[in-house]
């Protein structure tokens, strides 16, 4: 099959950026989308042109490195799928695809489709961890965890931090990411002592990074490759409300 790609090319953070058109022939329907970019990059290198910069690592949908907006949808049109797991059979022959980086003030473009997601790292540093050294994995069942909480915490922990939630949000809000991280720890016994301060500090950091505010569109949940529910956002809000009531200033 053949595809036409309009790829966002931006030489660096200071460059304005523009779309460049590439026609790629002999695409196998079994190729992943990233493999099409690999093939295109080989052709670009052979033509002594600058290859397209994009993030990728595990290519099995679990590392959170890859991500780009394809025809207005983060990670492309397939639900619960990272762009490395998106196969070309999803698209019709001759498809015209517009490829853009995540767009948010908090995720500045480094080059082409690569954005700086250090804001997520700083959010984790603000409270997305347990301060105490917990040692190695404890004996199973030594700390009882209700089945429902364990399942919910696992659902939240599925977040791979790819940033598609921010990319999909009409407000470029990081609420789903922060909600997933805060809920994953806040649901478990080990996370209880810092449950309140964690939420307060992560929310303050989220604002400081310049993410927008949640207006409950639900686009993050639709784009999330791990299908994390916006119910976790309600949970984050509830924890924040409790923290504010306890310490209004």
């Amino acid at each position: 099959m053949k595809v036409t790609l309009h790829v966002w090319r931006q030489a660096g953070p200071a460059d304005r950026g523009r779309f460049a058109r590439y026609d790629v022939a002999d695409v196998s329907p079994d190729m992943s989308f990233l493999e099409v970019l690999d093939v295109l990059n080989q052709q670009l290198i052979a033509r002594r042109e600058e290859p397209i910069a994009f993030d990728h690592d595990c290519r099995e949908g679990i590392c959170g490195s890859c991500g780009m907006v394809i025809n207005g949808r983060p990670h492309g049109p397939e639900r619960a799928t990272t762009v490395c797991q998106l196969h070309m059979r999803t698209f019709p022959d001759g498809a015209e695809l517009w490829i853009e980086p995540w767009r948010a003030r908090a995720f500045p473009v480094i080059k082409d489709l690569v954005v700086d997601r250090a804001a997520f790292d700083r959010l984790i540093q603000a409270g997305g961890f347990i301060t105490a050294r917990t040692g190695s994995a404890p004996e199973a069942n030594s700390i009882p965890v209700p089945k429902r909480d364990a399942d919910l915490a696992m659902d939240a922990a599925a977040c791979i931090g790819c940033g598609a939630c921010v990319a999909a949000c009409p407000n470029a809000s990081a609420m789903l990411f922060v909600a997933a991280k805060a809920s994953h720890l806040g649901l478990l016994p080990q996370g209880q002592p810092e449950r309140s301060s964690r939420v307060v500090n992560m929310v303050a950091q989220m604002d400081a990074e310049g993410f927008g505010a949640c207006t409950n569109h639900g686009e993050c949940m639709a784009a999330c490759p791990k299908e994390i529910s916006i119910d976790f956002i309600a949970r984050l809000n509830r924890d924040y409300l409790k923290a504010v009531i306890r310490r209004p200033w």
């Binding site: 207005g72 948010a104 407000n171 310049g210």
Partner: peptide
């Protein structure tokens, strides 16, 4: 305040962002 923060949060917009989950009501708030 919330609207201004959200507008500031995406200085460079997409060519197009395809709505999937949102509703007409949400977009016209």
């Amino acid at each position: 305040a919330v609207t201004q923060a959200s507008w500031r949060a995406r200085p460079v917009g997409y060519r197009r962002l395809e709505p999937v989950e949102t509703t007409f009501a949400a977009r016209t708030m």
